[in-house]
């Protein structure tokens, strides 16, 4: 199938882009890498009236490293992260994640901002950035605001992004040198969207630890008890399994069937074990 008819504009600045978005008389959508949006248009499950191309806005390519965090412009590509062409706050976690996401020819164009803005339930970045306690910076007609990633994604393809807002950047806290992480993506075919994702980050120096399940029938699921347990460095696998199960059971709104529940449990177990090694 071919994409439906659409108009197209390529503003020169972020402000101009937000203006266009705010004042469009038809359904306007920004397009970054297009790696999800064009596929959706080709399948005719998306038919915006106007595309506002933000892929080349310099503001959205800005990367800045601060003492405690790195901000990554929304249009930084998966490939740039994979290749470590941009600063990495995560001591290798993000490049590793990027290399398992889709295929190289998609990673060269797909962006971290697009991924977060879309919040496909099976996507990596929403889960990984939630695990890293990152924030997103949103820029709209009424200015800038920041939200924790854990709050930003609210459901399946649902976020707190307003119609006139553009995701400008992600602010990712820097991991301490002795921080550890675990990452498990279960999928049947390399490059496929995950059947289950688990991300574990523990940074004792900052007193931080978090376990997140992705591809979890909704927004990234923080496993609260498991997160606390991880901080203690659990040695008993049965206790760990029980805690993970408890966390998953509490998320009754996710309607996991037995198979999914098991997969998420195993993914989380294995991700935690990577941290403990």
């Amino acid at each position: 199938m071919k994409a439906p008819a659409v108009d197209y504009l390529r503003p020169r600045t972020l402000t101009e882009a937000v203006d266009l978005l705010a004042h469009a008389s038809v359904e306007a959508r920004v397009i970054a890498g297009g790696q999800s949006l064009v596929a959706m248009m080709n399948l005719r499950v998306a038919s915006p009236g106007l595309l506002i191309d933000i892929a080349r806005l310099p503001e959205l390519h800005a990367v800045a490293s601060y003492s405690d965090a790195v901000t990554l412009g929304a249009c930084v590509t998966h490939a740039a992260i994979e290749d470590r062409r941009v600063a990495d706050p995560s001591r290798g976690l993000m490049p590793r994640v990027a290399s398992t996401l889709a295929y190289r020819a998609i990673r060269t164009r797909g962006t971290i901002g697009g991924s977060l803005a879309l919040s496909d339930p099976a996507a990596e970045w929403p889960a990984v950035l939630a695990a890293l306690d990152a924030e997103v910076v949103l820029y709209g007609s009424s200015g800038r605001r920041s939200l924790k990633c854990t709050e930003f994604t609210t459901g399946i393809f649902q976020t707190k992004l307003a119609q006139n807002e553009i995701l400008e950047s992600a602010r990712v806290p820097k991991l301490s040198p002795d921080a550890r992480y675990g990452y498990v993506k279960l999928c049947r075919k390399s490059g496929e969207f995950a059947s289950a994702l688990a991300v574990v980050v523990t940074d004792p120096r900052r007193g931080y630890s978090r376990v997140v399940s992705g591809a979890a029938n909704g927004s990234p699921l923080v496993l609260a008890d498991t997160s606390r347990l991880v901080a203690e460095g659990p040695r008993d696998p049965d206790a760990l399994r029980g805690t993970i199960s408890g966390d998953l059971d509490r998320a009754s709104d996710r309607h996991f069937d037995d198979f999914q529940r098991n997969l998420h449990t195993v993914a989380a177990m294995r991700a935690v074990q990577q941290v403990l090694v």
Binding site: Y8, R10, G34, Q35, L51, R109
Partner: peptide, 16 residues
């Protein structure tokens, strides 16, 4: 290849 990097030509608009 787009600007020297592999890309899906089905997922890029010619205008872009």
């Amino acid at each position: 290849l787009v600007d020297g990097e592999p890309a899906r030509s089905c997922l890029m608009l010619a205008v872009a």
